[in-house]
Design a protein around this nucleic acid. Structure first.
Length: 450
RNA sequence: GGUCCCGUCGGUUAGUGGCCCAAGCCGCCGCGUUGUCAGCGCGGAGAUCGCCGGUUCGAAUCCGGCCGGGACCGCCA
């Protein structure tokens, strides 16, 4: 059937009509005041500070872009300019070298749109945010207003944007898979049960099975979405809910193809994010091409040698191992990133592809960033009989996986993918000591509010 | 789930048996200050020291339980 011609939206309007007010009537932003010197403008934001100096008063207002200063006579003094009150100000923009940023507003007409009558409970107006994490989280809607906190989430948004852009450009399709699912996707008891009408459902701990099925549809897909982990851990690097940046791609040679894509994606993410850094002094890492890589067994040998103990039988790398490897990669290659590939098949989920040369090891990898695991990925099984065998070998039932397995019964290319922990990457990048700082409203073992 | 550490004005830190009905800084209130910019100066208010019980002539301080928080480990992104 031929697609029917549709009128283009808004085609009855001229282009000129569209651009009459490109800013929708939003107030002038503080960063743009320099373009309005001599004019009377309307700005708006939160009262951050009122400094009364005898007959002269300064009001510092924070808007979505930054700070601006209003200067007025003490005779104009107002009692309702309390911290965090929202004001709309009309005033004349004056070039003033003594003002921060070189401009200020004079002869202001200030309207208080939202009057704050309570004392702000945490100290927000110091260059470094002093309260403990717990206070910051208890007062999250307020503490996030601090520039240092705002920056964290601007960078995080830019990282997610870079993730999307880099993959879209490589013909990946963004998908949205269910977060309410019938069975745990990777086995284990670390899922949250939820009442689902007459049944029990679970919150998805990963989009893994769904993104694989979508490889059978689009070939390459990605997803940005929440995942839920019910493990009762209490550490500075775990959340019960976090944002997973998932990608999955078909027609690969092996996990090395995936690693190559991941390197490119990270490079774009960091480049996009660095543009949002402004004046700030974040240590932006280079993404080497290629990122240095170690086989799991090689990694254990290196650490065994360095520590003088035999770790050869360890099934996994401990956090201490990862920290050591992080330092090693920095010293040996000058790299903040290090791939560890070929984890033992037994420690990886059932869908993991084996290394055809040495089947005890898998075609999987982790990416360490500054000594912490921030990405896991690998090649997956793609032939139906392999899934039947893998499930049997692990004593797992196919029950609940029928829908998933059908995708493989009816032809699936060799494929693989990865998942980046967005908060972990953010925290590691910005040197945050606790992952909770990299989550707007973190969910952990005990925190469910705000 | 295991081990260790911590709960003192709104925030942050001092005090670890009697000098403490608890001190400093930020914030708040008042006064002064015409170029502040983490404003400054002076004054003021604000804490039954997480909760319950115990030891002691006397507990913020010692002991036990509970609640809350943090770190590391196991496991994971």
């Amino acid at each position: 059937m031929a697609p029917r011609a549709r009128p283009r939206p808004h085609s009855d309007r001229t282009l000129e009509e569209h651009i009459v007010d490109p800013d929708f009537g939003f107030p002038i932003l503080s960063v743009n005041l320099l373009n309005h010197i001599g004019n009377t403008v309307r700005v708006s934001g939160w009262v951050q500070r009122v400094r009364r100096l005898g007959a002269l008063t300064f009001v510092v207002v924070r808007d979505p872009a930054g700070l601006l200063q209003v200067a007025m006579d003490r005779t104009d003094e107002r009692q309702d300019l309390t911290p965090e009150s929202v004001v709309v100000i009309r005033g004349q923009v004056v070039k003033e070298p003594r003002a921060p940023g070189g401009v200020e507003l004079r002869h202001p007409d200030i309207e208080v749109v939202s009057l704050v009558e309570d004392v702000v409970p945490i100290n927000l107006y110091t260059p470094a945010l002093a309260p403990h994490l717990n206070s910051l989280l208890d007062w999250r809607p307020l503490s996030l207003r601090h520039p240092s906190q705002r920056l964290i989430f601007r960078i995080q948004a830019a990282l997610a944007q870079g993730f999307r852009e880099s993959l879209r450009e490589k013909d990946f399709v963004e998908v949205h898979t269910p977060k309410l699912i019938a069975a745990a996707s990777e086995g284990g008891a670390d899922v949250f049960p939820v009442k689902y009408f007459e049944k029990t459902a679970y919150l998805a701990q990963s989009p893994q099975l769904y993104k694989q099925m979508m490889v059978g549809v689009f070939g390459r897909v990605f997803e940005v979405g929440p995942v839920f982990r019910a493990e009762p851990h209490a550490t500075s690097r775990h959340l019960s809910e976090y944002v997973s940046l998932d990608a999955e791609m078909g027609f690969i040679d092996n996990h090395r193809t995936v690693m190559g894509v991941l390197r490119h994606v990270l490079d774009v993410m960091l480049t996009v994010a660095a543009h949002h850094d402004g004046e700030n002094s974040i240590e932006w890492p280079m993404v080497p091409d290629p990122i240095p890589s170690l086989h799991f067994s090689q990694a254990l040998q290196l650490i065994s040698k360095a520590w003088g103990e035999d770790l050869g039988k360890e099934p996994d790398l401990s956090p201490a191992c990862e920290r050591w490897l992080g330092e090693w990669a920095k010293a040996r290659f000058g790299s903040d990133f290090l791939f560890v590939e070929g984890y033992p098949t037994s420690t990886r989920p059932f869908y993991t592809a084996r290394d055809p040369e040495q089947p005890l090891y898998s075609n999987s990898f982790d990416l360490l960033f500054r000594g912490q695991e921030i990405v896991t990925g690998g090649q997956r099984l793609h032939r139906y009989p392999d899934y039947v065998a893998a499930l049997a070998e692990r004593g797992m039932s196919a029950q609940g996986l029928e829908g998933y397995l059908r995708a493989f019964q009816f032809g699936m290319p060799a494929h693989g993918g990865f998942a980046i922990g967005l908060e972990r990457l953010t925290a590691r990048l910005l040197g945050l000591s606790n992952i909770r700082e990299a989550s707007l409203f973190p969910r952990d073992r005990t925190r469910l509010t705000p």
